[in-house]
Design a protein around this nucleic acid. Structure first.
Length: 205
DNA sequence: TGAATGATTTACT
DNA sequence: GTAAATCATTCAA
């Protein structure tokens, strides 16, 4: 069991969002649930820069009940529901009144693979378990209960991992955001099979 | 009170 | 390649 895994200090999150997003690659995401513990290496993340980012929920200072947690202190989880069927898991970064967050887009499963497979209704050998933001939430059993959870607590947190080679590319799934689509604010582990989409080519319409 | 839409996934043509 | 599934949140009235 990964007893050595401990939450990263809040200072890890209390930095500019792009630094945190890049720093996440190669780190471990850990969720201790009643069913068991699941962990995975973060291989893909995207930065959402708040008021200056048309793709962010907090664009132009929009502040609602949903994104309120992004305006709080760093090191908390921002979990929300989209498309009527999928959750997205984010790490709140920056500081109070800076609505920035890092979207975790893909993981490489490490511990609890069979538990993930069961939740996903897939074989444990599938590379399909956690290679997408909605998929990893299902595999890790992350849902609205985890919104505003303290990532420095014992249940759901990021722990240190091995450094990986990081690639930058444009973000995904935000075609509605105009010029911001081209911003290279997506970070992924170079050559990792669990990255949701290959960097280099942008999604075409 | 009602209508539109989305930080996606999956299946189908 | 395109489209459907499906509902909380958001915005307009």
């Amino acid at each position: 069991m990964p007893t050595a895994l401990q939450p990263l200090p809040r200072s890890f999150y209390a930095r500019p969002v792009l630094q945190v997003a890049k720093g996440c690659i190669g780190k471990m995401l850990v969720h201790r649930s009643a069913e068991g513990t699941t962990t995975g290496i973060i291989v893909e993340a995207e930065a959402y820069r708040g008021p200056h980012d048309a793709a962010a929920h907090s664009y132009q200072g929009r502040r609602t009940a949903r994104n309120e947690v992004m305006y709080g202190p760093a090191g908390f989880a921002y979990v929300f529901f989209v498309y009527g069927m999928h959750y997205q898991f984010n790490l709140v970064t920056g500081s109070v009144e800076q609505p920035q967050a890092v979207l975790i887009r893909a993981l490489q499963p490490v511990h609890g693979v069979e538990l993930m497979a069961g939740r996903r209704a897939q074989p444990p050998s599938a590379v399909n378990l956690t290679n997408g933001p909605g998929k990893l939430c299902q595999a890790f059993a992350i849902d609205r209960q985890h919104n505003a959870v303290d990532l420095c607590g014992p249940t759901l947190f990021v722990a240190d991992g091995s450094p990986l080679k990081v690639e930058r590319s444009a973000r995904i799934g935000i075609d509605y955001a105009g010029d911001w689509v081209d911003k290279p604010w997506r970070f992924s582990a170079a050559g990792n099979a669990y990255v949701s989409r290959r960097p280099g080519k942008r999604r075409r319409s």
